[in-house]
Design a protein around this nucleic acid. Structure first.
Lengths: 344, 344
DNA sequence: TTTAGCACTCGGATAAAACGAGTGCTAACA
DNA sequence: TGTTAGCACTCGTTTTATCCGAGTGCTAAA
């Protein structure tokens, strides 16, 4: 459907536009080293490319800009592997070299590097700790009415929430409940805790605790999982440097959207194992109409537990970002695996 | 120095400008109900006010805008108490009426309401939990090299960090250390933990633990306080609606500054018990040149533990914001006191 | 099939002109 | 003596006209 020359021209236009953010004319393309033919020839091919929907004009006599379809083609077929610069390499190395003790720390750092090396905004979800196993639970009473439940997993992840204390609970029973829970639930993955509570703990609880109904629902509350993974952002303000966001309204729409945790969640969560690239209107949300999002899952012990992603203008440095996201999702997975493996 | 009429005119100009964000002319002032004299008279007084440095012109034949000095005068002398609208009242009521179990929850909610009711950005620091007392500490080993230290205070606050485990530690010693710490340190305020570690725990530790030096420094690390209070923001994007921030560069400076936690800290921390109002360049930081910041401390058991604040343009609805910040700092203190008091 | 040549298009930059909100000043007035 | 009406003047904003040039499409020649 497209000749090799047309593909070459398309690629040149896209890469030029990614750099300049200005419509690209036939003359400037003809000056590139890789291009040996004249502006007129290029113009002919440009007209063809436009007919096929890969190029657009901002007005009747302007240069061309790539369409969304063009970026898609570029990403799918024209992309060359990216070589990291030395600086970038150093940055990435040092991220994964440092002694990291906590998963959350690793995740935050990754978000930072990601936004620093691109000039876009980074979003990192997770890590989802449902897979990790209960190491210890502690229920500490705070006054008469409330208690703090602290859950520590074998990956070093700590989750805590405050729970209302049922008034019927006898003195000393709380300690007993804690003991039972630790005895019966240790080693069980977080996502199975609720289920295990009924299969493993209920009957024991019945035996030892007076008002067993209240105690059970209290315990259930104490073990409830947090609504969803945390979201970490990096370099949100980078977006303000992009010429496509010099319009305040557009920026506002974007930044407001990023405050809506559940929307961001919906957006990044469906990243299939591997990498997802959504260009412009491929993002269902209107605020991302002029954005591309590149996201990849990272995993722990082989299972995906979170997502890292980059948000930038559709005119994005795809090859660099794709390599980077790829690389970092990989690296982050390794770091997490190291943290995990220290247990065994 | 200023006549009553001049003060009245100044006040009218300020209030008009706060609404419109446009230079105010003599004619529009003369039309107000509270004003009975002619534009010419007003012009004369305006000229005087300008000479005294309370008004400025954007160009030689423009209307006047209030100077920073004018806002200062307005805030110090002209401000009337603000009556909350019914909607606002409802919002505030419901904030403090709901069953709140955790301090952090209360603080977040406050930030939310604060930004929602003003159209500015809210910043909330804290609460600083140094005053609250250790209820329980748990040190949970995670593999060979690390352990998670979880501290629960009598206010239900949970802090945790991961600490590298000294390789010399014998099996079982960790449990012993935990027991000693709980026995000796319960009830001690967080800010005294480090000190108490040496005065109360060191010698006992010496007796029971083999490699006591390593254990001590390990324990010290486990008890270290987190660097500083958390910062919660609300409605950052509200700022983008203000006409003074239609300039992307200014917004960027502001948003970037807000990412710098330690700077925000320095900025809000010196809020004296009571309320601090910083107008325009009274803020040392350049990015806040066109902003005013109104902040107040909130307290727990009579001691200030955090700060709530509003950032908006110098052209701010001072009376509303001041009342609101005042009110909410008060309300938040009460909520925290309730949380605290449940212990006794 | 490629390329040189050329008329044409249209956004953006620049200049000139019209507009109008608002001022300062002067002189008359209560 | 303080207040006000009147009026010329200022200056940023908006509008209109003009020019410029990057870039196109088309045609005809190589």
């Amino acid at each position: 459907m497209l000749t090799d020359r047309q593909l070459l021209i398309l690629q040149s236009i896209i890469e030029d536009y990614i750099q300049s953010a200005e419509p690209v004319g036939s003359r400037s393309i003809s000056k590139k080293n890789s291009i040996t033919f004249s502006p007129a020839t290029i113009r002919n091919d440009m007209a063809d490319l436009e007919e096929h929907g890969f190029l657009e004009k901002t007005h009747s006599s302007s240069g061309r800009i790539p369409s969304q379809k063009a970026y898609r083609l570029y990403v799918d077929r024209l992309l060359l592997p990216y070589r990291f610069s030395e600086l970038e390499m150093n940055n990435i190395q040092s991220l994964f070299a440092g002694k990291i003790l906590e998963a959350e720390e690793a995740v935050k750092e990754t978000a930072g590097i990601l936004s620093e090396l691109t000039s876009y905004a980074s979003i990192v979800l997770g890590p989802e700790m449902f897979e990790s196993r209960l190491r210890q639970i502690q229920i500490v009473p705070i006054g008469k009415e409330a208690a703090v439940a602290v859950i520590v997993t074998d990956t070093g992840y700590v989750e805590n929430h405050t729970v209302a204390l049922p008034p019927t609970l006898e003195a000393g029973e709380l300690e007993q409940i804690t003991n039972i829970l630790n005895e019966r639930l240790r080693g069980i993955p977080l996502y199975q805790l609720q289920r295990a509570l009924f299969s493993e703990v209920r009957d024991v609880l019945k035996r030892y605790v007076l008002n067993y109904e209240a105690a059970l629902s209290f315990t259930e509350e104490a073990l409830r999982k947090s609504r969803h993974e945390k979201i970490f952002y990096g370099g949100k303000t980078n977006l303000l440097n992009q010429p496509e966001f010099k319009d305040v309204d557009r920026v506002r729409a974007l930044l407001e959207l990023m405050e809506e945790e559940h929307l961001i969640h919906e957006l990044l969560k469906p990243t299939i194992n591997g990498m997802t690239i959504r260009i412009g209107q491929e993002n269902t949300n209107e605020a991302f109409e002029h954005c591309s999002i590149i996201s990849a899952t990272y995993s722990l012990a082989g299972k995906p537990v979170g997502t890292i992603g980059i948000v930038g203008p559709t005119r994005m440095e795809y090859q660099k970002v794709i390599s980077l996201v790829n690389h970092l999702s990989y690296g982050l997975s390794n770091v997490l695996d190291d943290l995990y493996r220290r247990d065994s």
